[in-house]
Design a protein around this nucleic acid. Sequence first.
DNA 1: CGATGGTTTGAGATATATCAAACCTCGTGG
DNA 2: CCACGAGGTTTGATATATCTCAAACCATCG
Lengths: 208, 208
Amino acid sequence: MLNTIGRRRTLAAGESLIWEGEDSVLVANVIDGVLKLSTGTEDGREQIVGVVYPSDFIGRPFGSTSGHGVTALTEAKVCVFSRRDFDAFAREHPALEHKLLQRTLGELDRTRRWMLLLGRKSAGERVSSFLIEMSERLVEQGCEGSHDQPLKRFTLPFSRQQVADVLGLTIETVSRQFTRLKSEGLIDLPSRREVEIIDREGLIAEAG
Amino acid sequence: MLNTIGRRRTLAAGESLIWEGEDSVLVANVIDGVLKLSTGTEDGREQIVGVVYPSDFIGRPFGSTSGHGVTALTEAKVCVFSRRDFDAFAREHPALEHKLLQRTLGELDRTRRWMLLLGRKSAGERVSSFLIEMSERLVEQGCEGSHDQPLKRFTLPFSRQQVADVLGLTIETVSRQFTRLKSEGLIDLPSRREVEIIDREGLIAEAG
DNA sequence: CGATGGTTTGAGATATATCAAACCTCGTGG
DNA sequence: CCACGAGGTTTGATATATCTCAAACCATCG
């Protein structure tokens, strides 16, 4: 079993599992929590290039170095494998590779959709798109009863700065868009990290 | 052999092979030429989300619809497979899936690097990064003699508008950056589509 | 309560977009 | 051979969204 070569590990919020540029020595599966994948320029600008949730795969199997760091946004539990062990195991288990391929293809699709946002959308469209996506991806996988309904209300696993780093904006611009969307009655902000979507249709329209 | 289910096809420059949003009925391998992958918003803004070269894979195997269109930039030759046939074939040939997985992982890495450019880089940095990347990827795969040296001089497979659509800029901004880089002696522009890199070091420095 | 870190708000600067015109390049047909 | 036209490109002037810098604000925790 794959479990025999894996090792569970808990990460505190803010703790990194993999650093940008280091050679890929481990891969992992997310059990619980939310993690970010991020790169940056030499002069300190940062861009979050992906966000992973429970059941998602982390790391770069089959050679090469990791082009982005992986850091926990919330407390997180992961199942870690040495890359060498994992590679060997995967090669002998086509079903695993098939599943990994499917996930990777899906992730590539999602990433490409995000490029449209980064390249062509306005700040208002970006923030609205972001909130819609969050409401869809933060659904608890645990209880199968709630059948993938997007959430009306949720807690962001991001600080404002991190939202800015996802969207390629500054923290001030993000903040202003949040308050604008609130003042226009599309959302409510009960606290810093909580969001309630009041008018989903309207928000989708704003998302462009 | 895979060839028995594939069919060769030639595309004229500008011709599309797959349209955004249609369900994925075919996949293909690029034999020759350069193709773009692109998405757009309803109101006509476009973003090129990927560029593929000979030996690259096109399309979305294993279900789902295609999130982006695929269009030839130059005259192109591809080897097309019906997705159903390909899926079935792939499932029975783990080596093929393994190779496809490797390519997909590589493509995901590249795409994420591009997100940093779209989210955080200035116009000058974007254009410089673009020229460096082009000089590296346009190396002819044919002759193994020229061992992956980046090109000093090459012909862009893009119009200025398409460069803008890759970089998330307007055509005017792209044009101004080209002329600036030329006037600063980093590049030369012998003709509309041709670029010569005069000062590669300097250009890399500009790329951020 | 006062410090601390994150967030919001404000005023102003600036990079890039927008709108518009001039400019090439190249193929066509007189 | 030259005039013409059409597409793409460059250049110019101006507008504007977003960034930058700075201050006020607010929760949280000792």
